[in-house]
């Protein structure tokens, strides 16, 4: 389903990043990253020519992902957030974005990405 899709993964926790990247690769996706910091994520979000979707951890070691979200949304890239926060803790303007609550089941992530991608 995610075959040949270029998916940006931003996750600051190594184990989770690896696990997610592996699972996406198994689904046939081409993983961009994963990267763990806001600057690295910004660089990829800006520099990559083609991004089909992005899976973004909200809290990156204390730094918030919002600048990256803004940039990607500006590029019309579908975004799925992963977070330990509940919706009430998120800024209002991002509360509508698709969201997987941690700890996320891998199946849930792939489902959320498939829904987010234009078919």
């Amino acid at each position: 389903m995610l075959h040949n899709r270029r998916i940006l993964v931003v996750e600051d926790e190594y184990h989770i990043a690896e696990e997610v990247a592996e699972a996406l690769a198994e689904e046939g996706a081409e993983v961009l990253g994963p990267v763990a910091t806001v600057p690295a994520a910004l660089a990829m979000a800006e520099g990559e020519e083609r991004i089909d979707a992005a899976l973004l951890d909200v809290n990156l070691g204390g730094g918030m992902i919002w600048p990256v979200v803004d940039l990607l949304v500006g590029r019309n890239v579908p975004v799925v957030l992963t977070t330990g926060y509940d919706a009430g803790s998120l800024p209002e303007r991002y509360a509508h974005l698709p969201r997987c609550e941690k700890p996320v089941a891998l199946r849930e992530i792939t489902r959320a990405l498939q829904r987010a991608l234009p078919s």
């Binding site: 926790e13 184990h15 989770i16 690896e18 696990e19 330990g84 926060y85 941690k102 700890p103």
Partner: peptide, 14 residues
């Protein structure tokens, strides 16, 4: 919350 749930994710992935 963030840390607790991240930790569960990490434990699972380990």
């Amino acid at each position: 919350q963030h840390r607790t749930r991240n930790l569960l994710g990490v434990v699972r992935s380990i």
